[in-house]
């Protein structure tokens, strides 16, 4: 057991040292721009959002001084305390306030300090934000609301600083759920979320806040929502993931390649509403699907993907030979390294 843990720790460490890539060939990036980490990319997106829209507001716990992850650094100084401000420590208040602000035609960008603490706001997100437009017959909407929350394992967070709660929100029609995998993606997707006409929950992979570095254009750009991204092309198996888990999966693809397995890796990016077509097309080509996420496997979003793909590619068309595997990363801090072994197992 100890040696197993040691081995996976080595894999993890090598991952951490590796510069993060967003390009299909696995090399350091192709986007012309400044080299920056993920939190700086988020910070830049927020600067642009506030700069380009006088009706944009950024608020949450400790947001005024820059936020505990530094994502809001410099915003209050630049755009004033009326537009970038601390709120009381109360998640249901933050989201409820944000809904009212957004309903008046503003871009309300709310920060929940950790995704682990988003649950007090669950009712406001599920019963209010998601249904605001529908229940009013489109007379009112809170589409200007974006809720940012750092999610996922960092290696020492235990139960309350590591959770990946995305599946809870993917069950809720009326909101969008978006998770970026890298600095470039984070900036482009966040700007799209902020400017989207629907409430969005945007989970940021906090493991990568400082770790992931890539070239990010300094200008104002957006990446499309509900469009998956094929990170690397392959012919033997399709791998689907999102957020920080993709860095692990990318390494697995490289390892599998050495053993002669050609992997196609897809970043879902938007989990709700998700891009079935891209995943379906890939699985039709490879005939195999592996889904991996950090969140618990039972009732996880992987189950939705595997059910939909089996239904589309297998049941409807009567195709054979589709194998679906569903792998998770447990969120106990001690067991973090184990998921990599699971991955190796799957590829075997």
């Amino acid at each position: 057991m100890a040696s197993v843990l040691r081995r996976s720790q080595t894999v993890l460490n090598s991952l951490c040292r590796r510069q993060f890539s967003a390009s299909p060939d696995g090399n350091l990036t192709t986007h012309a721009g400044k080299s920056m980490n993920l939190y700086s990319a988020i910070n830049q997106a927020l600067h642009i959002a506030l700069e380009t829209d006088p009706r944009a507001y950024v608020f949450g716990e400790d947001v005024g001084f820059g936020g505990v992850f530094r994502c809001t650094t410099g915003l209050a100084d630049r755009y004033g305390k009326d537009r970038v401000f601390n709120t009381p420590l109360c998640e249901q208040g933050i989201v409820g306030f944000g809904i009212g602000l957004a309903a008046m035609g503003n871009r309300a960008i709310a920060e929940i300090q950790f995704a682990d603490y988003i649950y007090p706001a669950f009712d406001q997100i599920v019963n209010e934000a998601a249904k605001f437009r529908y229940r009013s017959g489109n007379q009112f909407n809170c589409g200007g609301l974006t809720i940012r929350a750092p999610y996922g394992a960092v290696g020492h967070g235990g139960h309350y600083h590591s959770q990946s709660p995305e599946a809870f929100f993917c069950h809720v029609p009326g909101i969008k759920v978006v998770i970026p995998r890298s600095p470039y993606q984070a900036k482009g997707l966040l700007l799209s979320c902020i400017r989207d006409e629907n409430p969005v929950v945007f989970f940021e992979p906090k493991w990568l806040y400082r770790l992931a570095v890539e070239e990010v254009p300094e200008d104002d750009f957006m990446l499309p929502l509900s469009q998956a991204d094929v990170i690397r092309e392959g012919s033997d198996i399709t791998l689907v993931g999102w957020g920080a888990q993709l860095s692990v999966m990318e390494q697995a693809c490289i390892d599998a390649e050495k053993e002669g397995i050609s992997c196609e890796l897809i970043d879902l990016r938007t989990l709700l509403p998700w891009d079935k077509e891209t995943v379906e097309a890939s699985v039709r080509k490879t005939g195999r699907l592996l889904i991996s996420h950090e969140a618990p496997v039972t009732g996880g979003f992987g189950a939705e993907i595997s059910a939909s793909i089996v239904e589309r590619c297998f049941l409807r068309q009567g195709e054979q030979n589709i194998n679906v595997l569903h792998v998770v990363r447990p969120f106990s801090s001690l067991h973090n390294p184990i998921h990599i072994l699971l991955l190796c197992l799957c590829i075997d």
Partner: peptide, 27 residues
């Protein structure tokens, strides 16, 4: 609920509208 009458649409959920009024007032 009526936009023309400046009256947000009612939800069944008890009290969930109260913080919306604060956000709207801030605007």
């Amino acid at each position: 609920g009526s936009k023309r009458h400046n009256y947000f649409t009612v939800a069944s959920t008890i009290a969930s509208q109260i913080p919306h009024a604060v956000g709207a007032a801030y605007s």
